[in-house]
C-alpha cells in the first residue's frame, strides 16, 4: 500500500473505533464522564476496567461508525474538556496505581471558537507536561488517525504502538499539500513526504510496535493486544516510578536530528 492508501485505510468508515477496542479487550468497563471543570466531551471516552483481573484506566478517542454516532462523538475531534477529562482520569489512575492505556484516533483537536475560547492549546500543553511525570505506566495505541497535537495529547507514553494501517502525522496530507505547496492535488506526494505510516515511524523510532492487521475482522487484533498489554504492563508495574518517569523523559528527549557546527 502507498502512504496515501494507508491514510485512507486509517480513516475507513468500517474501522473499529476506540470504544470497540475497550469493550473487546477489557472486562467490566465502567465509563466515567466529565472534566469536572466545564463539560462532558463525548469525543473521548474513559473509565476503569479490568485487563485480565488487573484494574486499569482506559481512555479512548472514538469517532463513531454511523452518522448519528459520528455527530454524537464530534467525529472524534476533542474539545479542551476531552483532554481535561483524560488528564483527570490519568491523575486518578496515578493515585490508585493503575496503569493507563490510551487509544488514539482523531483527525485532530477540534478547531472552533469554543475550543479556542476555552484554551485548546493550554489543555494539550497541560497533558504533555503532566503525562511526562505520571507515576504509573502509560501505553498509547494508535488505531486509526493520529492527527498532530490533538493525538500527541494522549500519547506521551512509555511505549507507543500502532496498528499496521494507522497513521500519525504533524499535519494531514491535505493540509500539507494546500498550505505548503498551495496545491491540494499533491496529497499523495504529501502523504509520502511526511513519513506518517507505521513502518516509517518505526524506522524513526517514534513507535515501539506495529500491530499487524488481518484482512477481515479484528478479533485476532484484540486478542493479541490483550496479551501484549498484559505482558508489557505487568513488566512495567515492577519498575520504580522514578525510573519509569526517567525512561519516559529519555524516550522523548532523544527526538531531534541536527548538526552541531
Amino acid at each position: 500500500m502507498s502512504a496515501f492508501e494507508k491514510v485512507l485505510a486509517s480513516r475507513a468508515k468500517d474501522r473499529p473505533t476506540g470504544l470497540a477496542y475497550i469493550i473487546a479487550i477489557f472486562d467490566d468497563f465502567i465509563e466515567l464522564h466529565g472534566d469536572r471543570r466545564f463539560a462532558e466531551d463525548t469525543a473521548i471516552a474513559g473509565g476503569i476496567a479490568r485487563l485480565n483481573d488487573m484494574p486499569v484506566t482506559v481512555i479512548a478517542m472514538d469517532k463513531g461508525n454511523t452518522t448519528k454516532e459520528k455527530i454524537y462523538r464530534n467525529f472524534g475531534s476533542p474539545n479542551p474538556e476531552g483532554y481535561r477529562k483524560a488528564l483527570r482520569l490519568m491523575k486518578q489512575a496515578e493515585k490508585f496505581r493503575r496503569p493507563v492505556i490510551c487509544f488514539v484516533d482523531t483527525s485532530g483537536a477540534f478547531c472552533g471558537i469554543g475550543a479556542e475560547e476555552r484554551g485548546q492549546g493550554l489543555a494539550i500543553a497541560e497533558n504533555l507536561m503532566e503525562m511526562m511525570t505520571l507515576k504509573v505506566p502509560v501505553i498509547s495505541i494508535f488505531i486509526g488517525e493520529g492527527g498532530s497535537g490533538g493525538a500527541l495529547a494522549l500519547a506521551v507514553a512509555d511505549e507507543v504502538w500502532m496498528l499496521e494501517n494507522a497513521m500519525y502525522s504533524v499535519i494531514s496530507p491535505e493540509g500539507c499539500a494546500s498550505i505548503l505547496w498551495k496545491d491540494p492535488k499533491k496529497v499523495k506526494e504529501a502523504a509520502e513526504s511526511l513519513k506518517l505510516t507505521a513502518q516509517d515511524l518505526k524506522k524513526l523510532g517514534v513507535i515501539e510496535e506495529i500491530i499487524a492487521e488481518p484482512k477481515k475482522g479484528f478479533e485476532s487484533v484484540y486478542k493479541l493486544l490483550e496479551s501484549k498489554l498484559t505482558d508489557a504492563l505487568s513488566r512495567s508495574l515492577k519498575i520504580p516510578a522514578e525510573e519509569l518517569i526517567c525512561k519516559r523523559y529519555e524516550r522523548f528527549r532523544k527526538f531531534g536530528v541536527f548538526k552541531e557546527i
Partner: peptide
C-alpha cells in the same frame, strides 16, 4: 520535519 517536529512539543 514531519513527526519529529511534533515530538519537540513533548520534549
Amino acid at each position: 520535519e514531519g513527526i519529529i517536529s511534533l515530538m519537540q512539543m513533548a520534549k
